[in-house]
Nucleic acid binder design. Sequence first.
DNA 1: AGCTATGATGTGTGCGCACACAATTTTACT
DNA 2: AGTAAAATTGTGTGCGCACACATCATAGCT
Lengths: 356, 356
Amino acid sequence: MNTKNIRIKDIAQLAGVSVGTVDRVLHNRGRVSEDALKKVLSVLDQIDYKPNLIARTLGANKTYRIAALVPNPDQDPYWASSKSGISQAEAEWLRYGVTVQPFFFNLYDKNTFTEVARRVTDSEPDGILVAPIFYHETLPFFEEFRERGIPYVLFNTNIHEGQPLSFIGQDLYQSGRLGAELMHLSQNGQAGILAVLHVNEDLGNSVHLAEKEKGFREYFDDKNPNAFEIRTLNLTSPNNPAFEKELLELIGNNKVRGLFISTSKATAIIAAFLEKHRRTDLKLIGYDMLEENIFYMKKGVIDFLINQNPKRQAFLGINHLVGQLILHKNPPANELLPLEIISRENLASYLSSGIH
Amino acid sequence: MNTKNIRIKDIAQLAGVSVGTVDRVLHNRGRVSEDALKKVLSVLDQIDYKPNLIARTLGANKTYRIAALVPNPDQDPYWASSKSGISQAEAEWLRYGVTVQPFFFNLYDKNTFTEVARRVTDSEPDGILVAPIFYHETLPFFEEFRERGIPYVLFNTNIHEGQPLSFIGQDLYQSGRLGAELMHLSQNGQAGILAVLHVNEDLGNSVHLAEKEKGFREYFDDKNPNAFEIRTLNLTSPNNPAFEKELLELIGNNKVRGLFISTSKATAIIAAFLEKHRRTDLKLIGYDMLEENIFYMKKGVIDFLINQNPKRQAFLGINHLVGQLILHKNPPANELLPLEIISRENLASYLSSGIH
DNA sequence: AGCTATGATGTGTGCGCACACAATTTTACT
DNA sequence: AGTAAAATTGTGTGCGCACACATCATAGCT
């Protein structure tokens, strides 16, 4: 029934030494005679010893501290969602002695990132989860993490030179293409102008949004090179008067048929704007099931949402770190989550199902 | 060290009894005075006791046998997918001493179900996962399971009178509505005839497909009562000459614009048929990411697939049983999975991501 | 030789739980 | 009241590992 697993005790017996000696060999903490070492190694060589992880964690009773280096959840509901995934993972692992300490940086201020990342390093955690939204600022820290031997996992934004234990996110280029497909489908075969909107983003330092736009554009290049004109609008913060002006100018053009919004928060902002100006005829495709976005989808302002699953991304990130720390299990180097399409008719089914 | 987890020992101390008594209460194996019971329960009521799974499985060294009563995977790739979810769950729990024994019945023969279900009961498993696709035949077995105190979980098809530990599936009415929404969207604003196709199904004994159809029809009733005519075709097996004849008659009508297929296997069959007759202009919406369906989607024959996630359904079913057996954790009575939309542009993202 | 550093090796304990069994109290009955 | 039986309650043990500590052997020194 149960394949009798080889225990340390068995190895000791086979080698003719005590469990203590085997233990010292296994963890190579020295203090073993050459003679004994040889005997134990030869046994280990012949059999495939797999330590019982259950027993190991029970006995160890060690606590692991994981640091989560993420944007301030109060600044953006997307990151609030992310945060809740972290909390959920922590709750799940708490009884195994895992704690997660969040370190928040300002989403709009690179300097706070550097400062907070410094604090993370100083806190000497056993593992780190990072949302590396500032490309240049993160690189030196990754190097430091590696030097210190602290495993780190990235999510949301990938940094290929980062060499993390694992990355969790989505294929952003394909995400843009998907947005384009949905937009195309919503156009009822008519041609016109489509706009890609970025709100309050420093496109220079955040490559990921450019990827989405590229996907969006290339879809139409592939399908229908001439029927649609794609415009990009790089909007400032909605507080800025230029924001409303530029937007009004855009939707004033009666050839404009649809808007593709590159982030979740911006989706809500644009939805509110369109409703205010009674332009729900324009097709609106954006990101994520934020409360506001759900509201506007139900109202018919938003046509499709692409779910980036921020909660799940963070959840999996913590899980992978815990798996590495406790079970010594290597997570996949790249975990790309499915690009989920949310429409009016399947919205409820997503809302009612949890994170699993 | 910071978060002191509550142990049985702690509960005993708080209640003023011994750990043995607490243990008896937790596993309600009686032999506890009313007085002691009350004390322990009141403590348990106040604190949230989460047993240490690690310690439990280490000590118990017990094995659990779960029986899976499911259709023969060789008869239908949908059920093969289901089976793979079962295997995956088993692999995950094997080291905790859980084994899953599959019992296959013939998808098209009620009698084999009864016979195999008999064998399941006789094998006296610790838990049972059932795909109850034959309504009338299953009911007496559920009663027997309950009498014997064996927990059982349903998936794919719900039987409300079944009183299972848990049901895992989807909202089929909403699934039909979603199919309708996608179909509507694909019609580019033009009117016409849309058909709902069932292939080789005994609709009398399988309520679930009628639910999908109802959803499909009601969507159009809500949206656009007059623009579309919805027809239903209840086809026999493709081997039957009537199959091709009826289908040819349908697509011969030049007002027919799209087909909605109620099952995954039928989706592949109809896709093959449409390709053969070069009618890929018709919009085709069906179910699930079977290999063939993926093939026809990439070719442009199938426009959308609604993912019922058979693998995940079975996976979760086993998980819930294990959770109940090992953790004594009650799963949700109804777990309705999201209705996932698969299109050409997000197909790859679903294929590359595993079951999680 | 007697003694101590020093290295090598073996033994013991706890982690939290489940379960067997021993100890104790209560009940039933003569 | 005395005793046996039954009901209740408490204690002990093992699961496999890691680590602390005790024991043992040997060499080096006075």
